[in-house]
Design a binder for these strands. Structure first.
Lengths: 358, 358
DNA sequence: AATCTCCCCTAAACCGGTTTGCTAAACCGG
DNA sequence: CCGGTTTAGCAAACCGGTTTAGGGGAGATT
């Protein structure tokens, strides 16, 4: 006569075993002070002996919140997690979430649909990264009444958001190279997630490009279209982009990369092409990920507070989730050029790159 | 006379508005074929106009599963996410999870308690990484009836697990250096998460150390205790470890690092100490993270299939979650030495390191 | 002795869905 | 015209908890 279904014990089982009501058991776990001390501890003992744990889903249902925040990205997590930028960002998100007692739930397209993934997600709010404001998904989330905080996008005026000075940072990178005498540039950009799509001028990469261009324009320079190559934001992407540029006959003295990972790829490709950095070629990245200071030579790059971005996004989000603060803040963080070893004076010899006189 | 509480519409609201029962609404969403086509689409229209989405938590409660898997780590996520190893591992986990239609939930100690974090987590199963089998938490999870898959730990015979050939990989690393003529070694290890704890001989680091030692022993060599330094598994940790070793007077010709991040730190510290790699010093890492092939010089290291580890763990886990397969598999994956540029023949000059004759 | 408090605990409603079991009407062949 | 099968939809039970409103008894107050 064995018990055939070792099913999970419920609150009713504990109540029966302890000879009390379900309410009492609930009190024992959630507000023990509403029970006589010995009753509470007896209930807890019984619960323990039965191996009872309150069912988290049932609890969520009645308490109306999940103590979980979501991180929403339009790309598959499997491509995202290998990105050091995302790692650092998640670090910031996790730090704030952990401090506030929230768990982390990553939301990415399931079976191709971000909407259905979002529909399944049991979160109190979401941090949205890598999505432009006009993405239909974002509107849907808002309509569903789920609080959200946007990262790298400020287009929703009544929503909390965190952005960085992308344009200014990019400008300072280009100015740095211009001051070193460089005139022949190659811009290495991150391609949009959807193949074929044009660089969104309001997106992060669009702003960085704008920053580069405005610095060049101030020196009477223009950037020919073919001096902009794009690829995936990875070391391999950077290698491929640099090789392609060389095969196309470009011989820049300086490379402006929109991501550190790609800059590291450029460093690598340059070495293979027999170019010394920074003597023959200067390279500047963007983001200042951790390894940037440990490359050889150390990478000159535009620092942005990646971790803080994640942390602030969560703080902003929680302030509306917990209704501590209704007004939604728009945070704008600074960027800062970190001059290290990968940039130097432009070499003397002239390059054959197209240049437009002012 | 405005509606004051724009509360989320419930299934009953849709039912009333459409003039049908709750059941019909539920059917419209979940098994439309049980309804007349026009009824179903009318209900869906009403739902849409009301902005109704089925409540995911309520749905979880009745359906008895969450379509979410947890990743459990004993360390704070904020320290974990910056680790490239973990990034690659998560990539594998995410890949398998996404393919199977599961979302990802990261579980780390909340307010210092892994148990309470686990108690709140609404997951169908967990992938456990970095936890030894005798950790009280693991027992608790099993007792709670939550399916789990252990990574890097095989101690639970009736649980699915994924491990790699740590000892063999470490041995091959040491043998490679021995074959190059090295006799004076420094081992750079990853410190246990709890300060002061001794290296768990059954843990990953313990096995790697055992592998190093057995290769040395086969050549009649012993490793003095002071030739093993430990630190956090990061670039900084590697730099600090190498510096400390030098300050202690050690002058090894070869470094065996238990993690690539630390090996990269060693590379960096060596450069600062004026040592050429591999002419003056050989360095071999462990893991073969992505950047290992892009360091300067490219890092010789022991490859382990990190992504596959994550992927397999999820597959194994889901096979028990979905009861497709009751027998729990124990997977053991191979490691493989990747010889690259950071190792070379031992330099001629003898070092003053302590050496025990055979 | 009656009333008031306070303490400890409970019954029942509720959270927002899904699922089971059933019924009434439509359909069908003979 | 009749019994049998389908079809379309409903009411109620259920998932596993929390919370509200309130009841009974003991001690304090009048």
């Amino acid at each position: 006569m064995e018990e055939r279904t070792p099913r999970r014990p419920r609150i009713a089982d504990v109540a029966r075993e302890a000879g009390v009501s379900k309410t009492a058991v609930s009190f024992a776990f959630n507000s023990p002070d509403r029970l006589a001390p010995e009753t509470a501890s007896r209930i807890l003992d019984v619960a323990d002996s039965l191996g009872y744990r309150p069912h988290p889903v049932a609890r969520m249902l009645t308490q109306r919140h999940t103590h979980t925040i979501g991180v929403l990205t339009p790309q598959a997590l499997s491509v995202i997690f290998s990105n050091p930028f995302f790692g650092a960002f998640s670090e910031g998100v996790a730090l704030a979430a952990e401090q506030e007692g929230y768990a982390l739930h990553f939301i990415s397209p399931l079976h191709g649909s971000l909407a259905s993934a979002m529909g399944r997600a049991t979160v109190d709010g979401v941090v949205v990264i890598g999505l432009s404001a006009d993405h239909p998904e974002v509107e849907q989330i808002r309509a569903a009444g789920v609080p959200l905080a946007m990262v790298d996008c400020t287009a929703l005026p009544d929503q909390p958001s965190v952005v960085v000075e992308d344009e200014g940072g990019a400008r300072s990178a280009a100015e740095h190279l211009l001051a070193l005498g460089h005139r022949d540039f190659l811009v290495v950009g991150v391609e949009p997630p959807l193949p074929g799509a044009k660089l969104d001028p309001e997106g992060v990469m669009g702003k960085r490009l704008k920053g580069y261009l405005s610095a060049l324009a101030a020196h009477g320079l223009e950037l020919p279209d073919h001096a902009v190559v794009v690829g995936p934001a990875s070391i391999e992407g950077g290698i491929a982009a640099m090789r392609r540029a060389y095969e196309d006959g470009l011989r820049p003295t300086a490379v402006l990369a929109m991501s550190d990972a790609m800059a590291i790829g450029v460093l690598r490709a340059a070495r293979e092409l027999g170019l010394r950095v920074p003597e023959d070629l200067s390279v500047v990245g963007f983001d200042d990920i951790d390894i940037a200071q440990h490359t050889n030579p150390p990478l000159t790059t535009v620092h942005q507070p990646i971790r803080q971005k994640g942390e602030s996004a969560v703080r902003l989000l929680l302030s509306v989730v917990e209704r501590r603060d209704i007004r939604s803040e728009q945070l704008r963080l600074e960027t800062r050029l970190m001059v290290r070893g990968s940039t130097g004076p432009a070499p003397r010899r002239r390059q054959e790159v197209v240049r437009v006189p002012s």
